[in-house]
Design a protein around this nucleic acid. Sequence first.
RNA 1: GUGGGUGUAGCUCAGUUGGCAGAGCACUGGGUUGUGGCCCCAGUUGUCGAGGGUUCAAGUCCCUUCAUCCACCCCA
Length: 421
Amino acid sequence: MEFSTIKGFKDILPEEVGPWQRLEQTARHVFHCFGYREIKTPLLERTELFSRSIGEETDIVSKEMYTFHDSKGRGMTLRPEATASLTRAYIQNRLYHQSPVQKLFTIGPMFRHEQPQKGRFRQFHQIDAEIFGDPGPMSDAELILMAMEILRLLDLEGLTLAVNSLGCPECRPGFRSELSKFLAQKTGALCDNCTRRARTNPLRIFDCKVPACGQAVAGAPSVLDFCCEACRAHFKGLQGYLEEAQIPFRVDHRLVRGLDYYTRTAFEIQTDLLGAQNAVVGGGRYDQLTQQLGGPDLPAIGFAMGMERVVALMERRGEAMPERPDLFICALGTEAGKAAFVWMTDLRRSGFWVEMDYSGKGLKAQMKRAHRLGARRALIVGEDELAAGKAVLRDMDNKRQEEVALEGLTSHLQQALRQND
RNA sequence: GUGGGUGUAGCUCAGUUGGCAGAGCACUGGGUUGUGGCCCCAGUUGUCGAGGGUUCAAGUCCCUUCAUCCACCCCA
């Protein structure tokens, strides 16, 4: 085969598309109920938008972006996530003038040049929701509830919610330096990976599987101990609302996110059914980002749901029940074929799914095809029927047949086909 | 970027010490000249991932390469 999809990119085939549609439909329904409006932004943005919001030192920016230069030498990047683009759109279009609080969602592909593995692709799809302009913990709770609600409506099991607070610019530096100080005493006790992490992403060390590292950080300081009063109250408020809504959750002090812009609330909805990738939804608050990108100083919070991962969970549990044609017309002979084509078109215009065979095969072959397609009924019409002014309507499930007059056939069929459920 | 597994028919996979490229499913036709599923019979489908090497002979052994999956890192 000369051409095939490039590494980490996938075709979603017709037989796979069912769960995708159900997921998107469900999400749109929930967004409607929660008052979120759809926004569509370009897949391509200036590189600086991502490097400045996500963070120059993060894995995403430092090694995972699809970046190229246009003819004028400007850096262009396929979006690796949606928040930066939505924030840009929010600022550029001054949506905050319309109304201080904007609740937005978008659905579409993201691109990261990573090594593909289970649940991880170079082009993947996210359902993304953001609230701009509201600082309070009630917004945090609403957003989390909304993500949980989408997953609940899909009947997915085995999902757990983890929440944490990362502090704010007031209190985080204190924690960071304290943790660094602590880790500095432990150099030598840590594995190579963690020695590097101590510099780049200290909180990750808590996750290390090497036993020695676990022991080394046993007495390390915890973020929550360093939170300022405001952050503490915020986090407490969030937990209160989650409890009110009867959403079970777990406070996970080690929950860190790989993007620099997060402040205060961070959360993940996790599963242990997807191999090494346990996050189905990830999100958090980013109160400084709008200002950082040159907009007004307004808070925001958002989440991203990995569609491939949710779809994998749906498929794992079995799904489907493919749709069935309402009618298959078996026409024998050119005259009958011509008449059938007209009836078929008429019924399709009336909203029915109707199929027929164009190849002129025998009745047996056509019946076989009708069966393969799962047609509920078959209409059999040949020269005899045309002459007699009648056709045979067969119920494919119970094999009962009846004669129907060709006179006013389509309106009669419409009536018969409506009795499907 | 690093490590390991796997590449043979449309799909799932067998293939022995190197000796004619296989099965099941699917598909097509027939048994039933105008009635689907079950059954029976017949048939179609291959650069054995690619390139090179060893050999009388390579799907099988050696080298190289590519793809894919899983894992590390990190993330949805």
